[in-house]
Every structure is written in structure tokens, then in C-alpha cells.
Design a protein around this nucleic acid. Sequence first.
DNA 1: TTATTATTTTAGATTTGTCTAAAAATATTT
DNA 2: AAATATTTTTAGACAAATCTAAAATAATAA
Lengths: 221, 221
Amino acid sequence: MFTLAEENYLKTIYHLESLFGEGVSTNAIAEKLETKPSSVTDMVQKLADKKLLTYIKYKGTSLTDLGKKEATNIIRKHRLWEVFLLEKLQFQWHEVHEIAEQLEHIQSEELVDRLDAFLGYPTTDPHGDPIPDKNGYFKATDKKLLASMKVSEQGICVGVKDSDDEFLKYLDKKNIAIGSMITLLAKEDFDHSLHIKVDDHSFFITKAISENLFVKSHESE
Amino acid sequence: MFTLAEENYLKTIYHLESLFGEGVSTNAIAEKLETKPSSVTDMVQKLADKKLLTYIKYKGTSLTDLGKKEATNIIRKHRLWEVFLLEKLQFQWHEVHEIAEQLEHIQSEELVDRLDAFLGYPTTDPHGDPIPDKNGYFKATDKKLLASMKVSEQGICVGVKDSDDEFLKYLDKKNIAIGSMITLLAKEDFDHSLHIKVDDHSFFITKAISENLFVKSHESE
DNA sequence: TTATTATTTTAGATTTGTCTAAAAATATTT
DNA sequence: AAATATTTTTAGACAAATCTAAAATAATAA
Ligand SMILES: [Mn+2]
Ligand SMILES: [Mn+2]
Ligand SMILES: [Mn+2]
Ligand SMILES: [Mn+2]
């Protein structure tokens, strides 16, 4: 249906739009895709011609409903493949993203449906992100940053903000995974480091870590 | 490592070379890839520069060891994915080839190794073709055409020559699959049609069918 | 062996997606 | 408000992979 480049643009614009709102800037897209702004302008004009997004010169772009549908479908495929790689092929959670970047472009609706069934219709990917259904629908998980927790509050780890490779490896080393029970024992006002308990043992984490981990309040279950 | 187009050329040249011998003609490649001879000349010159094949103007091309290694690796991936689609996702055998055409280009050695293990190290694909190992090695199955069997001889169906969609559907309808026991009951000299018994029930097949089905003699087990 | 036909290569053009350099528009300072 | 800086677009070029049309070579027939 669409080319590899077109699909990557749609996915990127979708992510930027849900983070920063409508009217995604040319530079933001260029940075995310590691390309030049001039290339982005060209492609965005082409995607506008195809009714996948609206584009106003110097004002940025926003996906149309058609563009959003296409984007969520690619994200659906990406996340289903990530589950497959982790659950069935025993990859580690920091290894799956790169391969899913390729697999997300395989064209076959039947394949995606059967993969979904084979995996038991999962609702989140290995990083805690929701998997859209066939119609692009998914419920936004009510998560908040670990940094925003109050002392003695309990939370369940539900996802990561930036799924950077090194960060995921750090989490593995510290035995923090999706589903881990995290209790905030104390906050250090000076450097905003946190003393936390994960499942059974406790340790300290920096501010940077606490701003990259999503938790769901335990009460709000 | 290589582009999608380059990989498809390598795979096609490999198949043509193993069918008709060294020195594959420009026209033969063009026909298989549904492209123009002039495009083939261009690409073949590029692949020769990259030491993947030897090319002599007007004389045809032959893969180098490097080219063969690359080609068998793509074929390995193609066939492993076909097994996955059939065994794990319950696709029918005539549906798997087209999707595998896409999946064969996914780049990740680790992925192929883990897929191989996940499938239990299969040695043949759903159409009876051997799956090369990591080094490109596979044993040529000692198969022969059903058309070459003698009356009252027994054989096990081990593969198809042309895995055309309609042909595979015909086989499904007639309950002929890899592993089916086939007995040749009688030959009709006039139109070369055959009266055969498959597992339990018997029926007639045309010459065309008999020249598209591979069997392994039952004695030679 | 010469003429005709078929195959293959070259030349030049096209599409897609990218780039650099320069121009235009917008945003921020002074 | 004018000057400066930043962002964005345009213009022109390029590599990859393809095409058409024409030229060159090889194979076949007369
Ligand atoms: Mn991912
Ligand atoms: Mn991608
Ligand atoms: Mn196949
Ligand atoms: Mn292919």
C-alpha cells in the first residue's frame, strides 16, 4: 500500500503528535528520522497529496483520520512482533525493538491477525505500551512517572518512557520489569534521588531513572 | 548488507543456475523477475563489481562462492518462515510463499537462529524443499517425478516442482500432501494419464500433474 | 556465407528518496 | 521597530532501480 519511507514518516508523525499535539514541526520530524528538514518538506508534501495528513507551509503537519489509521496499524504490527520476539523467541526486551522496526513493514493483514491470535491477543508490548486493535483503538493506560510518586506509595511498573537500550539493560540488572511492585521509601530533596524497594530488595535510583519509568498506583486497581 | 533488489537477483540466479547450469542468460533472469533485460544487465554488472557473481558480456553470469552463500542464506530464511507460517500460524501451504517473499529479507542473524530453534530445526519446507543450514549446506533429496514411476511402484510424496497456487489448491482438494503414500495403479499410454491410489482412495490424474509432483521410492528408505 | 532473427548491451529518461546550498518566512533580541 | 537568529522551503544534484529505444553482438536460416 505505502512505501517503507512513507510508513516510517507516518509512524513518526503519529508519535510526535501524540506527545506534543497537532502541528508537528518539520525539524522535529527530521530529528526523529535522522534526516534533513528539506527531505521532510518533500515527503510531507507528498503525504498531503495522498490525503494522509494536512500540511500548511511553515505551520507544520497533522495526520488525517486516514493517516492515523495507517500509523496505528504500523504500531500495532510493531508491538505484536515485539511480543512475539520476546515471548516465543526468548529475546530480551532491549533487543526486540530494532528487529520489529523491520517486521512492522511486512504487508499481510491475514498474517497480523493470525500472529495476534497465536500470541493470545496481547494488549501491551514488552515495554508496557498498548497494542492497538484492528480498528486502531486502544485504551490509554493511566500511568504516571515514578518521579511523581509520594513517599510510602506503592506502584506497579507498567512501562518505560524512553526505551533506550542502555536504560533497559540497567533495569534488567536491577531486576525491574513490567509488573514489578515498586515502593517509594524515601526522597532526597538535594539531588532528587529516590530510595525504592523493588519486590524484595531496596536500593537507590537517580532522578533520571525515576523520570523514565512509568508506574500505575496500586490503589487504583 | 544488500538491498532488496540485490537479494532477489541473487536468489533468482541461484535457482536458475541449479536448474540449467552455469552461465545464466540475461533473458532468463529478466523473465523470472518480471523485469526487462536491460535492467538485468545493469544489475548484473553491479553485482559483478561486488564480487557476488562473474559476468562475461553476452555469455551470461554465474554466482561466486560469496554469491552462493548469500543466496542460500536468503533461501534458508524463506523456507524457515514458510515452516513458521504453516506450523505455528496455521496458514495453508499455498499461502505461505508470498508472505515468505517479504520475510526472507528481514536482517538479523540472531532472529533466524532463534526461529530455527523455535521450529525444532526443520530440514524441509512445506513444499518438500530442503532448508540450508547456517553454512548453506543441505542434502539434495533423492526425489523423482511421479511421471517416472513404474506401475505398481509405491512412493512417498516429498515435494512439488512448481508451487503454483492453483496447483497446490488442487492437491489439497485431492488430499495429496507431503508424506502421502502414492501407489501407481495403471498408466494410460494414449494421454499419459495415471490411475493412482493416495493413502486410501484411488483416482485419475493428468500427465501435467504427474510431472509436477516429486516422490521418493518407498524401497529406497 | 550472407541474410535474417534473436539476444544482449548501451544511451538516455524517469521515479523515489535523499542531500547541499541558497532563499524565504518566522521568531527572538536588542 | 529594526536587527539577528532560527526554522522552513526551494532549487538543483545524486544514487538506486527501473524503463524505452536504438545499437551491437550472437545465433540461425537461406
Ligand atoms: Mn519498539
Ligand atoms: Mn520502520
Ligand atoms: Mn516459497
Ligand atoms: Mn524476495
